[in-house]
Amino acid sequence: MAVEAPALICSAKGCGDAAVHALLWNNPSLHTPDRRKVWLACDEHREHLEEFLSLRGFHRETVDAHAIPEGAG
């Protein structure tokens, strides 16, 4: 029996759409420089979530949701 991977859902509050982007970030006051946390985003919420993280100096890069680097999370 095949096991399906869990659906990737946008991290924006109240959104249930499929995520197509992974926003990699870290909070330098809490995380080591190489640590990457992940927020998922649909096309509609990508810009908003990137802006939220960027204003705080947390955003590091955005990649395809199916290309999240190993160890990020």
Rank of each mutant, 00 (worst) to 15 (best):
V3T: 11
A22W: 03
S11N: 04
L55H: 13
H21F: 15
P33R: 04
E61V: 07
S54G: 11
A72Q: 00
D43R: 08
H31Q: 12
S54F: 05
P69H: 01
W25V: 05
S29N: 09
A5K: 15
G71M: 10
C42I: 06
H48T: 08
P33A: 12
E47P: 01
A7Y: 04
E61T: 13
L30W: 09
S54H: 07
P33E: 12
H59S: 05
V20T: 13
C15Y: 12
A7P: 08
A72I: 00
A65I: 00
C15A: 05
A19G: 00
P6K: 12
H21V: 06
F58L: 10
L8Y: 03
A22G: 10
L49G: 07
L8G: 02
D64P: 01
A22S: 10
L23F: 00
E51Q: 15
E51H: 10
G16N: 08
A7D: 15
C15F: 07
R35C: 09
P69W: 01
A2M: 11
V38G: 01
G57M: 06
A7K: 15
S29E: 15
H45E: 09
E44G: 03
F58A: 07
P69K: 04
E47V: 13
D43W: 01
L55K: 11
E51R: 14
F52P: 00
P69D: 01
W39G: 02
R60N: 02
S29C: 05
A41R: 05
A72S: 13
E4G: 07
E61S: 15
P33N: 07
L23C: 02
G73N: 09
L49F: 08
V38D: 01
R46F: 04
G73M: 10
G16S: 02
L24G: 02
R46D: 00
G14C: 03
V63N: 08
H66K: 13
T32Y: 08
V20G: 06
A67S: 12
H31P: 06
F52W: 15
E47R: 10
S11W: 05
C15K: 09
D34G: 01
A72Y: 01
A22H: 08
V3W: 04
C10G: 09
R35E: 15
E61H: 01
R56C: 06
L30M: 14
L8M: 10
D64T: 03
G16A: 10
A5T: 12
G16V: 01
H31D: 15
T32L: 14
K37I: 03
R36T: 02
A22Q: 02
L53D: 06
R46E: 11
R46T: 02
E4K: 12
F58P: 02
F58H: 14
P33D: 03
E44N: 12
P28E: 03
K13Y: 04
L55E: 14
C42F: 07
L40M: 11
E50N: 05
I68S: 05
C10V: 07
A18H: 13
L40N: 11
T32Q: 13
P33T: 08
H59Y: 03
V63A: 08
V20A: 13
V20P: 00
S11K: 00
A22P: 02
H21E: 03
F52I: 08
M1P: 06
H21I: 07
V20C: 08
E4W: 07
T62F: 04
G73A: 13
E50A: 04
H21W: 15
R60H: 11
G71Q: 06
V38P: 06
E70G: 04
R60I: 12
C15Q: 09
